[in-house]
Amino acid sequence: MAELVRTWSVVREDLRASRILLRAGWRAALVYRASFLSAIVGGVALQGTQLLFIGVLLSKFSVIDGWRLNDVAFLFAMRLAAHAFYVVPFGALVMIDYSIQQGEVDRYLLRPAGIYLQVVTRHAPLMALGDALLGFGSLAIFAGQSSVSWTPGKVAFLIAAVIGGGLVETGMQTFLAAFSFRMTSTISLRILADDTITRFSGYPLTMFNRWGFLSLTFVFPMAFIAYLPATMLLGRTDQLPTATWLAAISPCGGLIIFTIGLTFFNWMTRKYNSPGS
């Protein structure tokens, strides 16, 4: 019980601290007004090319692994929206190498707030607004055109799935970022993960044979980002080589993966070797 009270007070303290630090981050970002538009355009361009890519392909091929254009577009949109739930709150995670190399983490360790929290509130990720714009915009358009017959229950499932998908990506990136406490640079590893997710998590993943699919579900769990919940909404769970219930509870995958990532991250903070002797 006492343990629970202590945990709760830490959580409350962190929420308060994150409000304070986020406000500071946004205020600092607004100092450079000119960068605002440029960053948002960059965010739209990054994910937008993927949307263009799939759009051009499907205009020629119209079907991919038995999925029609409108459903693939919906799957892509789900992934884009989930991505926004990663980059908007946690986008500053990208800077972890820099924070460690420059010894900023020294200062985080001296403050009465969580390390992870201070890392993710380090600056306001302006580019993420472009991701959010594109993600939520395309989801709003393509959800209506997909073959899902929407009910309030399905809408709720979709919202949970998109937030969960964001947490899956966050958890994976957090796990990889934790290695920065031991390695000089993990940016290329994280770009590799990000790139793989960006390029391929919007496809019907069962197209990569059985073992490919299983490793994308349990080893590099990007199937939880959009594909698994989408099969549930589209009634295509019969395609899966795994049990149907896995798709049904897939929105919870985010919580589990994020918890694993965060626990590992916090454990690795003890391995921190501050730069400079």
Partner: peptide, 18 residues
């Protein structure tokens, strides 16, 4: 001309890839 070229660089990278 401007210090804030992060967004432009990304637009160029992905735009030119396409």
């Amino acid at each position: 001309w401007t210090v804030e070229i992060g967004g432009i660089m990304i637009l160029y990278r992905f735009g030119s890839a396409f």
